[in-house]
Computed example of a mutant assay.
Amino acid sequence: MRSARPVGLLLSAAAALLWAIGMTVLQPLTEPIGPWSERLPGNNAYWARDLRFTAIVAVVLGLVLAGRGRLRWTGPAVLLGGLWLAADVTIDRADPTGAGPTVLLAAVGCAVLGAVAAVLWWRERNAPGAGTDRWALTGAACVAGVLTMVAAGIESPTDREPELNRAAFATGVLLVALTIGAALAAAPARTRARCVLAAGLGVAAVAGVGLIRTIPPGPRALPELALGAVLLTGVTLLAWDWPGGRPAWRRHAVAALAALVGPTVLLLVVAIVMIVLLPVGAMFTALAGNSPINAADSDVLYSLIGLLAGLGMGLLLAWPPALGYRADPSGPLRPVGSEGPAGPAGGRPASAERR
């Protein structure tokens, strides 16, 4: 996918803008006034934080897409995401508000993003050529797909649902674009059929995000599951090989079942672990200097839960044989017909669509 780099960088820049808006416009709406116990926030109070953290992940995913999944881009992108998260906590303590800080944070975020991309591009000029890492791109698409479910279903315990609806819809649309972009970039060939499928999937997913935001907070679970199943099944249809030029429908039927059941199981398991054993949300709340969640409720970081569940789905659906990688008895997985290095980062896998 020749347009992977500009598309990935554009989506990363959009994520940086959403992050800046979340910090200076949305975060102040979620913070209670006064230190009294009866004013302590409850469940889902810091929804703006979850949207910001999701935007940071989107910045990373955009860079992964821009680098076509190659380790030269993926490693620095993950490092940038960690540093961005630390900066987020530090800036949150300062409580910036207003148009000025919004513009400043957006400009700084885009400048940092541009500088990182320029350095990576410059380093790549003198490096030996490498093909697309389809495994990494498919995993990135799965992460974006699961996070789309999370962003679309985020709730607010206060009367800020109108502001949340707009922000969640914008974040969901961005994640849909990342999901489809990464999956299409992972495809062995950019055929007309795959492009039409990508367009249809995008329209359906965006409509699904909008529909979920119109449903009252309670009964959103089933539409969220349907959205995730459609997106993740679409990822396999776009990214996996089509033997003989057509999808292997039996494989995709199994993938659809995994896409329907897998995210729910992973989200529940990760949520239980984080609530019972590792209260990460409370740690971030304390680091940012925000009021703690009252003792009757839980401080859950849904963005982190979605990230971990998405990585799990990536391990499940980025199935090497479906991406053109074959087991070599004398070594690790390598693309069929490739002269590149062994493993998913090697050259382009063979596919009937290119023969």
Score class of each variant (00 low, 15 high):
Val300His: 04
Ala141Asp: 10
Leu266Asn: 05
Asp133Met: 05
Leu10Phe: 11
Arg125Met: 06
Arg354Ser: 13
Leu184Gln: 13
Ala221Asp: 15
Pro335Phe: 06
Ala127Gly: 06
Leu311Glu: 01
Arg220Ile: 00
Trp19Pro: 05
Arg93Ser: 14
Leu26Asp: 15
Ala282Trp: 03
Gly202Gln: 02
Leu231Lys: 03
Leu237Gly: 03
Val235Ile: 07
Thr264Phe: 14
Pro6Gly: 08
Val270Thr: 12
Thr132Cys: 03
Val146Ile: 06
Arg125Val: 11
Val254Arg: 14
Leu225Lys: 14
Met1Lys: 05
Val176Cys: 11
Ala177Ser: 11
Gly181Gln: 01
Arg348Trp: 12
Leu333Trp: 15
Cys195Phe: 10
Gly244Glu: 00
Ala77Tyr: 00
Gly340Met: 08
Leu323Glu: 13
Met23Gln: 15
Leu266Val: 09
Trp121Pro: 04
Pro321Asp: 05
Leu227Val: 08
Leu104Asp: 11
Leu104Gly: 10
Arg334Ser: 14
Ala350Val: 10
Cys142His: 00
Ala55Pro: 07
Pro217Phe: 07
Arg194Tyr: 10
Pro188His: 09
Leu278Ser: 08
Val64Ser: 04
Ser303Val: 06
Ala198His: 09
Leu120Ile: 02
Ile91Cys: 02
Val273Ser: 05
Trp242Leu: 03
Ala248Glu: 15
Val269Cys: 08
Ala107Glu: 13
Leu211His: 14
Val269Trp: 08
Thr24Asn: 08
Thr264Leu: 15
Thr102Gly: 11
Ala77Gly: 08
Ile21Asn: 01
Trp73Leu: 05
Gly67Val: 04
